[in-house]
Amino acid sequence: MATAGKKPLTDYIRAFAHFGGVNNVFHTRSFGRHALVNDGVYVYQVSRFDDLLADYQSYFKGDYHAVYTVFPAELWASLLHDKIQLSSDDLIIELYKGWKAFWKKQELNAERQAASLAAFNEMILSFQKDGDLLEAADADAEVLIPVIAITIQRQYAKRKDFLMDCIKLMTFRYVDQIGDGQLFVKVGPEGYPDEHTFFIYTVDEDF
Rank of each mutant, 00 (worst) to 15 (best):
152 I>A: 01
149 A>R: 14
44 Y>K: 03
162 F>I: 07
116 S>M: 05
37 V>S: 03
24 N>I: 01
130 D>I: 14
80 L>S: 07
124 I>W: 12
193 P>W: 05
156 Y>F: 14
148 I>E: 05
64 Y>S: 09
112 R>D: 08
57 Q>F: 01
175 V>D: 01
143 V>W: 02
172 F>G: 08
1 M>Y: 03
118 A>D: 08
146 P>F: 06
65 H>S: 07
34 H>V: 07
167 I>W: 04
110 A>H: 11
109 N>L: 02
79 L>T: 13
12 Y>M: 04
65 H>T: 10
43 V>C: 11
136 A>E: 09
15 A>E: 00
187 V>W: 00
43 V>G: 05
160 K>I: 01
3 T>E: 05
84 I>Q: 01
109 N>C: 10
8 P>F: 05
5 G>N: 09
35 A>F: 04
138 D>G: 09
35 A>P: 07
159 R>I: 01
43 V>N: 09
122 E>Y: 12
7 K>I: 13
142 E>C: 11
183 L>R: 08
62 G>T: 05
1 M>T: 13
17 A>Y: 07
18 H>M: 06
97 K>T: 10
103 W>H: 11
174 Y>L: 06
94 E>T: 14
160 K>H: 03
27 H>I: 00
53 L>I: 12
34 H>S: 11
149 A>Q: 04
179 G>F: 01
132 D>R: 14
155 Q>E: 04
61 K>N: 13
44 Y>G: 08
8 P>E: 09
200 I>D: 10
70 V>S: 15
169 L>W: 12
12 Y>N: 01
32 G>M: 00
67 V>F: 00
181 G>Y: 03
51 D>A: 09
46 V>T: 11
